[in-house]
Every structure is written in C-alpha cells, then in structure tokens.
Nucleic acid binder design. Sequence first.
DNA 1: CTGAAAGCGCTTACAG
DNA 2: CTGAAAGCGCTTACAG
Lengths: 341, 341
Amino acid sequence: MKISLAKPVSIKDIARMAGVTHSTVSRALRNSPLVNRETVERIQRIALESGYRTSAAARSLVTRRSDTIGVVVTNIADPFVAGVVGGIEEAADEHGLSVFLANSNAEPEREVRVARKFEERRVDGIIVTASRVGAQYVPLLEHMQVPIVLLNNQHPSQFAHSVMIANVQASLDATRHLIALGHRRIAYLGDRYGYQSDTERLSGYRQALEEGGLPFDQQLVAHGDGKPEGAETAIAELLALLQPPTAVFCYNDMSALGAMRQIRNHGLRIPTDISIVGFDDLYISQYLNPPLTTIRQPMRQMGRMAMETLLKIFAGAESGNDIKVPGELIVRQSTAPPKES
Amino acid sequence: MKISLAKPVSIKDIARMAGVTHSTVSRALRNSPLVNRETVERIQRIALESGYRTSAAARSLVTRRSDTIGVVVTNIADPFVAGVVGGIEEAADEHGLSVFLANSNAEPEREVRVARKFEERRVDGIIVTASRVGAQYVPLLEHMQVPIVLLNNQHPSQFAHSVMIANVQASLDATRHLIALGHRRIAYLGDRYGYQSDTERLSGYRQALEEGGLPFDQQLVAHGDGKPEGAETAIAELLALLQPPTAVFCYNDMSALGAMRQIRNHGLRIPTDISIVGFDDLYISQYLNPPLTTIRQPMRQMGRMAMETLLKIFAGAESGNDIKVPGELIVRQSTAPPKES
DNA sequence: CTGAAAGCGCTTACAG
DNA sequence: CTGAAAGCGCTTACAG
C-alpha cells in the first residue's frame, strides 16, 4: 500500500478546535502568562490529544535560531571521534539542541559540501572533531559567522574556539614513564596527519629526553597515519634499525594496535622485548593483550566541553573559550623495564 | 567582542540587486527553464558573490520535505554502531540529505525525547540502530507516519522496514567451524539485551550442534550484556563448570574481547586451551592477540542499505523492504582444534 | 519570460 | 486576556 502522509496538525487546527485564534494557541503552547490559565490548559490538552508537534522549521524561521548544531568529523568510525560525539550529543540533548552529523572523510569536496549544508540549515554553532583539520577548513566555516569549536586543534580566528588535550604535558609524562623504567632508546611513532597534536606530542617526547639526559635521535622518529596500517609500516622501519628502540611512544592507541601486531609478527614480545605506550585510552585498550599503557583522554567529557563552550558563547560569553584538558597516564602491562638494563 | 550575527542574504536581497522580483530569483536559483538564460546567469552570479545560501527551513516549510533523516542509536561509541552510522551518513550525503544523530542510551525518557525531537524536525525518515530495540520504541516513532528502517531488528508495522544480518546462517557457519575443528563442548555466550539477534544466533548455534550430532547443554549457554564487562562474568561461569567448554561462540566481538581477557586471567591460552569466535568483525578484531576468528557483518554497507531503503520508499517503492545480508566467516587465529582431540 | 499573490506554520509587536 | 496584522524566506499556481 502507498503510505498516505497525513498533514501534521498545526496551531490553526488547534485554534479551530479550541475556538480561539492561532495567536492564542501559540501563546498557550509556550505557557505564556498572558493567556487565561484555563484556556492554556484546554489548548494544551487538545494539543496533546491531537498529537500536535511544533514545526521546528516554522519556528526557527521567525526566531532566527535553529536550535541545531553541526558536528563535522573526519571519520565517525574512529573510536576516539565516536567517543567525543557521544559526549557532544549527550550535552546537546540536555539543552534541547539537535545535532547534525557530517563526515568529511578528510575529502576537500566533502568538506565544502558539509559547510554548505550547515549554512543552509542555519546551524547555531559548529564543532569540528577532525584529527586532521586542514588549515583551509576553518575559513570555509567561518563564512557562516557562527561560533566554531575545534577539538584538539586550534585556529586563530574570531569565531574559532578550542578544547585541547594538554599534549606536551601528557607526552612528557608518557616518555618520563619509559625513562623511569630504564629505557634509553625510546622511539616516537607519530601521525603524519596529526598536525598540531603530532607536533606537540613529539615536542613533549623531546623535552622528556632532554630532561632525562638522553640524546634526541632523528632515526627514532617514524610517522604513520594514525591508524594501525600506517603504524605497522612505521614500526617496521624502527625495528629494522641497527639499534632498534626498546620502547615506543605512539601517537595514539590505534597506532599502538598496529605496532603491537607488527612487533608480534617479528617474533618479539611486549613488554619483554619492547615496551609500548599509546595515547587516548580507547575503551578497548584495557582489553588488549597485553593491556595497553596509555594516556587517557576523557573523550566523552571533551565532547561535552565543546558543546558547553558553544552554549556559553550563545549566552554571550566573550572569552575564556580555549580549554586545555589534562591527560592522565594509565600504566598497564605493555610497559616494563628493558631486558638489557 | 560580542559577535554580531549578520542576517544572511535572502532572495529578496538578491532580487533588489538584480532588479527583478524574488519569484524570478527563486526560479533562477533552481535553474528553471522558465527564466531567461542570461537572467539566470546574472542572478546566480550575484548569489554566489553575495554568499547566498538557501534557507532550508523556509524551503521545507513549503515543500513539506525536510531533506533530513533521523538516526537513533543506543550508543554511538559502540564500534558496530559507529560503522553503520558511517555508511548511513555517506549514502545520505550522496543524496543531499542531512542526518540528525540521536543517542537513546537505551533510556526510555531519552527515547521519548528523541521521538519528539524528530517529529518537530519533520524528518523524512528514520533509521534505528539499536542493539536493543525495545518493543515499545517503534510505536513511539510510528506516530510520525514516516518510514522507519530497523537495523538488525524487525517489527511488524506498516512503517517499519529492516536490514538484517542473516543471523541463523552465520551462527550455523561459526559453530560448524568449531565442530569441524573437533570441538564437542562448545558454549554460546549471548547478549541478554540482544533480543531477536540473540535468539537467532542461539538458534543457529543449536542447529549446528544438532546437525553435528552434539547434545545441547543448557549449562553451556551463558549471557552477558554485549559488552566486555558482561562477557567477563558470563565466561567465568562457563569456566567454572566441571567440564568447561573447549570453544566459545560469542554474540559479538566486544563480548569476545571480554571473554578473552578473562580467559587469560584464568591462566588459559587462546586458542590452545580454548577457542573463541566472535561476531561483527570490528575493525580492531584483526589486530587482537590472537587475531579473532569471527563473522563479518558489513557494517558500513548495511548502513548504506538502510539509507537506500529509505530512498526507495521516498521514491514510492512499496515492498521488498526487508533485506537480509549474509555474514561471512573470517577464520583467524583464535580458533584451533581442542587439545584433547 | 516575469510579476503579483497566496501560503507553508509559526512568533510577536500593536491594539483593544 | 485575546485578536488582527505583519513578517520570517521560501515556492508555485495564476495571469499576463
């Protein structure tokens, strides 16, 4: 059968049933104190019984607010991103906002399409959770003159704010932990698409080496793509070194996942032969074999913070909209003292 | 500084600039053949230069289509769900639709809120990806008289269609694989919130046992919550049996993850002491130690199919909207012949 | 090919 | 307390 889409009931319909004008219905529905209490109740009862539902489109046309925010991600299937989006949605829901989800896939044409779509939808704000925000992306969104919150990325702009993990401090902690265990040949396995985050994590790593009196060796730095695949190639280079590292600090847990598999394929044991530390503390990381030592990023919380930053800006806040969140070192079983120590 | 939100340019503004009425602008913008070619070009140029962007709200008010779909998930942080949503978004984008994401968290009040929100937004269709669709949820959405596609769940209704993995066949394959390896004490570790999927997977498991001449033993069935935590408790029961299983077929990979950790904690080795098979083939499953034998669900593809089902219905299709997708057994290293065989 | 008019479903000053 | 009017930004019959 062909489905007949019944036209939804409007305030005019209710007005007819209640014997008042639609103006009164509109007021009654919003609980205006201007309307007679009994009338309000009668109208609300009718609305309920008739299954009335305000048209968000009609309302936003006049209020000039869509009560909607746009969330752009590079890849929703990335567990870090999914965690953040969960937090965003939760906070949005609490404040009666709806979220548009768009996956840019890091493809320039899609990014343009997303920006256009958000403009047409007149989103009230935007959150970008892209591990790889291109420098050209924000200007695209800026056109909208709507507040933008970047997650783990910053961009100097009137409209762009940020929620960032404290990369340098966290990486310092991670690397110090390896040094404290006695490691002297520690590698950094980065993400060549990690932009600012990669730079900062590398920098924290270098600071820790310096602090520990260890030389920085460019050979011990390799870059993957932030995913297991790329990490496998990158760690292979490291393992092929004349003096391979005894510990590797990875850009993120997904990279650690790939590194660990490759290490096993080389017949080496973790942490006996080589220690691994990740970054993110994905939900699954505690279930790995061995459980992964890593830096915890409070993903859900960071998503909430991004949403709340937007809300503060809506409410008129003008500054203090760059938040830095501390990471936390979680020591598990993928790290141990080096064999030869 | 307080951000001044410039009012976006409307077709009226363009009309003024072009010296025509807004009707003509509206037509020109939609490339109507009714409008003089040169006028169309002039108007489009002005629109482009002025940064004009159609108001989706205004348009949908008259067209009665929002070009929007609502996606409800129980938990976006679940990797299976995130994969499906990725596919949905991808297909939606290709067809110029926007997606509203809502997380029900399996909380009844949130479900009610989500349904209401989708109604107000006048979504053109809904996709539900909940591992645990309550029987009461669909009626909530049905009120909207909008097509609904359920993922891995079915519901008899004029409006509800479905995309399902072929649970029985897949579970049959998974269990047969274990039987073929020589296992005779095979357990099923289910998801007590898995509803239809759990029932069907259990049923495929039982069919395989029967087919293989193995007795069904209720003791070898334990139920977790579809997550690692619940699986840990469930498998502990199984391991405590006088005659523990030599192989376990798990409801999903997340359960397998928990089971594997618990097994290790009991000092047992996988697959030497016990074989494990999962269900889903999450992205990470190939990176586990040992890599997980599992049933592949084409998550992304299933998301696309759900979206495409909606599109077909929009286009007037009236039947054939219950799709069954085959799973695929992926044999990796978490399964092997039993020790004592 | 173009314009004037009506209307989509709301909100909100302005009168009374 | 209630109504009549205007308007948000579009689309689309109806005229010309």
